[in-house]
Nucleic acid binder design. Structure first.
Length: 237
DNA sequence: CCCCAGGTAGGCT
DNA sequence: AGCCTACATGGG
């Protein structure tokens, strides 16, 4: 697991998890270790689906990642698969990031802004390359940080004005970058979950609104449990 | 050759 | 406001 210039290696043990990392304070905050997830799990365990999903993803944490890194990462994630997303992000670090022993930090805004569309294509960003270049021209980390006290709805409106950011990527940035819990990112997996357990609907905006109404301030947590459950479920069948 | 993957942008109505 | 469809790229 990487964030900025930090790295953590997580090992599952008999009675929990062990984290070997570059900075304890950083990762206590990053993994939100001061939040009581047992309480959240209890509140969400209202039916068999949620109980199973929580049991399956018992170690899930909503990370508190840097906003800029989160945004770049999720622009790359759009209509992409996780394996290639990880590969592309590792290449970004290796080719443009600072070398820190045997790993690399996330590249700075200035370095990223100096790259052109062809560069991003060369590391597998595909057609998102143009969006990334445009995004880097439109904004910068300072501007993104300045929005952190806006309310969820207002913040989403600002985010979706930027290139490469639609409703789903915005929700992910709100959740993992701005730590807003009242969002429910709807991707292809959540669409499947919804159609399996909640009802027939293909409009993702309607799906999102219904799920936020249902889970309110625990939407982000519920989303993570259901997302992981559905994605892994597929691998086991 | 098809469909899918942590969807979005731009054009049309 | 909604409803198409093109879009890179690799895997199944």
């Amino acid at each position: 697991m990487f964030s900025g210039n930090e790295r953590a290696i997580i090992i599952e043990t008999e009675n929990g998890y062990e984290i070997i990392c570059s900075s304890v304070d950083f990762f206590v905050h990053f993994f939100d270790l001061e939040t009581d997830y047992d309480k959240i799990k209890q509140k969400l365990s209202k039916n068999t689906l949620m109980k199973n999903a929580i049991k399956f993803g018992k170690g899930i944490r909503i990370v508190r990642n840097d906003v800029f890194e989160t945004t770049i990462s999720f622009i790359i994630s759009a209509n992409n698969n996780i394996k290639r997303i990880q590969k592309t992000l590792l290449l970004l670090r290796k080719e443009l990031g600072e070398r820190l022993g045997n790993y690399y930090g996330f590249p700075s805004y200035e370095v990223l802004k100096n790259q052109n569309e062809d560069y991003f294509k060369s590391i597998g960003c595909g057609y998102r390359s143009k969006q990334i270049v445009k995004f880097l021209q439109q904004t910068n980390p300072q501007k993104l940080e300045s929005w952190k006290n806006l309310e969820t709805k207002e913040l989403k409106k600002e985010l979706t004005k930027l290139s490469g950011i639609g409703p789903k990527v915005a929700d992910c940035v709100l959740l993992f970058g701005y730590s807003k819990p009242d969002v429910f990112p709807v991707d292809t997996w959540i669409e499947k979950v919804y159609n399996l357990y909640f009802g027939q609907e293909k409009n993702r905006e309607i799906i999102r609104d219904n799920l936020v109404k249902k889970f309110k301030n625990l939407s982000g947590y519920a989303q993570q449990y259901l997302f992981y459950y559905q994605r892994e479920f597929k691998n086991h069948h």
